[in-house]
């Protein structure tokens, strides 16, 4: 009775109302920033007295925003590639390996996801100060890779678990070498998992704030670092414009991920 939506009577409407309110609560702040980014009020009055593209103009006129966005994209792309490659190898070991301690290894691979990012950030900051990696591209990539890898491992090993290894065996029986079987049979079969891992890793790197604050230098900063430093000074609508572009990118990547999932279920 409680698990049949149409037999809930009055409760059905209460639950529906809660869901509607929750959706509004989650959605309104995002729509609000989008609206503000087109509003002409410097003081973020809502509803805005008029509409303008001034903030986008300011955003694109400032070379620091553009170079920060470019840095973010470069770092996120490298992190994406490395995270999928390392994640794939680690997942193969976790799902196909026969060595002892796989459960422990799996838990270990996931710890960077569990530990507060701030601890990882401060620890890496100290280590990078000694290694001279602070404020470098490599430093950024390593830091972001550490937190992206767990998501890659979860997604890819999830895909591997649903793929029957005996198909790989069949390929080997038909004359493929083990690595050939992996590349030409297993990889295409789990491509949806690899794509999801790639998108997750990209987004994690692209959005990372805490690590980035510590890795950044005056000459090398990512978009979130630029937003962060601007935000600490004032709430200028330029941030609304930058945020709107970020929301747009997230929405596009989510649609791509959904399409991939749909393609897989077909």
């Amino acid at each position: 009775m409680l698990l049949d939506f149409d037999k809930l009577g009055l409760w059905k409407w209460i639950l529906s109302a809660i869901c509607a309110l929750m959706a509004l609560f989650l959605l309104l702040p995002i729509l609000f920033i989008v609206a503000l980014s087109f509003g002409n009020s410097r003081w973020l009055i809502f509803p805005p007295p008029g509409w303008t593209l001034k903030w986008y103009h300011d955003l694109f006129a400032d070379p620091r925003w553009l170079s920060a966005a470019f840095t973010s994209a470069k770092i996120a792309l490298v992190v994406m590639v490395l995270s999928v490659a390392l994640g794939l190898l680690a997942s193969l070991a976790l799902t196909r390996g026969t060595f002892r301690g796989r459960a422990v290894l799996r838990a270990f691979f996931l710890t960077p996801m569990v530990l507060p990012v701030v601890i990882i950030a401060v620890a890496l900051y100290a280590a990078f100060l000694r290694l001279g990696l602070n404020g470098t591209f490599v430093g950024f990539v390593i830091a972001h890779l550490i937190v992206a890898l767990p998501f890659s491992v979860i997604t890819i090993s999830g895909a591997l678990e649903t793929f029957d290894p005996s198909i790989e065996d069949a390929a080997i029986l038909c004359g493929a070498s083990p690595w050939e079987a992996r590349f030409r049979v297993t990889l295409p079969a789990i491509s949806h998992g690899l794509f999801s891992a790639a998108i997750f890793s990209f987004l994690i790197s692209w959005d990372e704030v805490v690590l980035a604050i510590f890795m950044a230098s005056p000459t090398l900063q990512t978009l979130p670092v630029k937003v962060w430093t601007t935000l600490r000074q004032d709430l200028t609508p330029v941030i609304a414009a930058a945020s709107t572009l970020l929301v747009g990118l997230t929405a596009i990547l989510m649609i791509v991920a959904a399409l991939i999932r749909k393609g897989k279920s077909r």
Partner: peptide, 20 residues
């Protein structure tokens, strides 16, 4: 066939392990 003998496969976890 693809798993090989007992105790194998850990080498693939090595790059991620070393990084971490």
């Amino acid at each position: 066939l693809s798993q090989g003998r007992r105790g194998s496969g850990w080498g693939m976890a090595l790059p991620a392990l070393l990084l971490l």
